[in-house]
Structure formats: C-alpha cells, structure tokens
Design a binder for these strands. Structure first.
Lengths: 190, 190
DNA sequence: GAGTTAATGTAACAGTCGTTACACTTACAA
DNA sequence: TTGTAAGTGTAACGACTGTTACATTAACTC
C-alpha cells in the first residue's frame, strides 16, 4: 500500500462548504462557484464527496454538528433557567443574536427545500418538533411540558425568528416573545 | 390597424402558471417544463411576459390576487368573530384546511427565496407583518391590538402553519393554537 | 381582397449544470 | 529506489438554462 488517505482534506472542504452556504444559501448551490470560493475545482468536490448529492448530505450533517456544538456551549456557560418563561427568554436572547442569523436563515431555506423534496433532506422537517421537548428537559425546566405547549412554543419562536430574519426588527420581535413569556407566567400564577 | 391584442391569452397563461407553481414549486421554475404543462412552448412565455423575471412577477401578483379573493370570500360568508380568541380559531380553521395547504407551502418557499434575494420578491417579507393588524381590524375584533400582540399572533400562526406543512399533523397543531387562544382568554378575564 | 399586426412554432445561440475521461503529481510502503 | 494509490488539474460530454432569429399562420381594419 502507498499514501494513506487523508480524511482531513474532506473535513476541511466540508467546513468551508458549510461556511459558504451560510452566506450564499444552499438552494441554488452549484459546484463550480463553490469550488472557486474554496480555491479548488468541481472535479475535486466530486472526487471527495462522490456527487453533488453526497456533498449536500455532508454539508447538512456539518450544519447539524456545528449547531449541536453551539447549543452545548450555551448549556455549559452560565446558569440554566428553571422555569418555562425564563427558558424562553434564555433561548431567545441567544438564538436572536446577530451571530446566529446566518444559520437561522439557512434553516428556513432548508425547510422550504424539504417541504418540496422531503427525501433529499431527511430529518429537516421532523427534527425541530422532537428537539424542543428534549431541550426543555435537558435544561432542567421544572414543570413538565405538554404536547400542545411544546407545539406552541416551537411555533411561536420559529415564527418570531422568521419575522426577525424578514424585518431585522429585534426590538419588536423580542417584545413578541416577552408577551408570550408573560402569558405563561400569568397562567402559572393564576 | 389589424388584429387587436388579446389580453385574455396572458391572463389564462398566468392563471395556469399559478396552478403549476402551487403544485411544482417556484424555486426551480424553468420555462420549458412549465410551457409543456401549459401546452405551449418557452418561446410563447417569453413573448407574453417579456422574460422569465416578468413571468415570475406575474405569477407573484396572480398568487396575491387569488389569496385576496379567498380571504374576501371568507369574510363575506358566515358571521365574523368578535373577540381575539374567536378570531384566532376562525382564521386557523380556514387556513389549516387541506385546500389551503398548497398556497401555504408556496408562501414558505417564497419566504426562503425572498430572504436570499429580497429585491426579486418585493413585498413578500414585509406584507405579512402589515397584513395581520389590518385583517384583525377589518374583522371588527373589539379590543385593539398592540404591536407585540400582532407580532406574537402572526409568529404563532405562521409557526404552526410551518409545523402543519412539515408534519401534516392537524390535530397537534390545532391543539397548539387552542392553547394560544386560551392563554389570551385567561389574560382578558383575569 | 390588401395590408397590418398578433400570435405561434422550430431551431439555434451562448452559457451553466453535474459528471467524467485522461494525464499528471504527490506521498507513502516495500 | 520502485511500486502503488491518493490527490490534483484540464477539458470535454450531454443535458439543461433563458433568450432570440426566422418563418409562418391567424385575425382583424381598410
């Protein structure tokens, strides 16, 4: 045998490709412009990822890993919220930050693509629905969450994020989330 | 002069094109497949709409007109809700119906496209934010709506619609909306 | 009927797409 | 040093894209 394979090349290309789609979008991703930005050529992308479809899969899992790491860092640093309203404010403060905007925009693009072609983007539509109860539980929020609660909270935050991406109005969207948090406070106190 | 122009041809093509994108999506719309479905050819689409961009504009306004008509028909038929929770349930029952699913899916696709290319889809991002307060007022809902309320209600219903498109679970998403309606009832009564 | 313009159809243009054939260099094991 | 496989680059393939040149038919006014 000679010259062992170097998995680092693929990983480096994948990370750069994730960066690329975060700013350029993934819907009309083409090999040649991407390759040019990565200082290589379409031939190499095919070589390392097998096909455009394989590249898309790798990018998707790259985004997933990166976001999982982000949430993990959130949970390690700082004190965790103990009530549902506190959790809502805790989550919103982080996900609505300008740094998270590119990935939020990308996720909405993935939703649209997955709605038209679910098989090409497996898990994109189902994961968020399963993610919320898990996150709330992992955070150690006291009161258990009902199915309707989880659905509404996911919907409200997702809708507010769409509004935020569309209008860049963090003040107004944050006021919307604050109202939601207070509605839950009123219910728990009353 | 000879042979006056027939605007009906363009209108008929536009209506058929709207039907087409409702089922096939608009993100990767190409002239030739569309033309084939419309029993014509790409040459004619360019002739009647000037360019692909002009065709897209016409399709967009066609969708807008159709949806405006749909809402108008909703308002004419049946009694209007007078309270905010009643309005939420009134609106959700209609917009979550299977008949509305294609246009809801298309709108989410348009959101994603507009997030990447706002100038190509003018109004798509801004209109919904302005639409809700107007609709609530036109319905004659008694209590005036605050900015935070409008933002949260738009976000929640939009988020629930995204969930509905993604999972096709009308029972769970309707339970989410029911919870939202009750939260507003509790606040108004307390 | 003559003249004029709308509407249509075919075929091609230049450009981009994903993918591949072929030649080539690089880096390691023996 | 030689053999072998990994990695790279160029150029091309066929298919598709929006658009257009050219020819033709259809429908109207005079």
């Amino acid at each position: 045998m000679a010259r062992p394979a170097d998995p680092g090349i693929r990983l480096r290309l994948r990370a750069q490709a994730v960066d690329y789609v975060l700013t350029h979008g993934i819907g009309d991703l083409a090999l040649r412009p991407l390759a040019k930005a990565l200082k290589t050529n379409a031939r190499m992308l095919i070589y390392h990822f097998g096909s455009r479809e394989g590249l898309m899969r790798e990018i998707l899992s790259g985004v997933r890993e990166r976001e999982a790491g982000r949430v993990e860092r959130w949970m390690k640093a700082g004190r965790k919220p103990r009530t549902m309203p506190a959790f809502l404010r805790w989550y919103w403060r982080r996900i609505s930050a300008p740094q998270a905007r590119p990935v939020v925009r990308l996720v909405f693009e993935l939703y649209a693509l997955a709605l038209r072609n679910p098989r090409e983007f497996p898990g994109v539509l189902e994961e968020p629905v399963a993610f919320w109860p898990k996150l709330v539980q992992a955070m150690g929020v006291q009161s258990p969450i009902s199915e309707a609660e989880a659905t509404l909270l996911l919907a409200a935050t997702r809708g507010l994020l769409l509004d935020l991406c569309a209008t860049s109005d963090r003040r107004r969207t944050t006021a919307g989330l604050e109202l939601l948090a207070r509605l839950f406070e009123i219910r728990e106190s009353g």
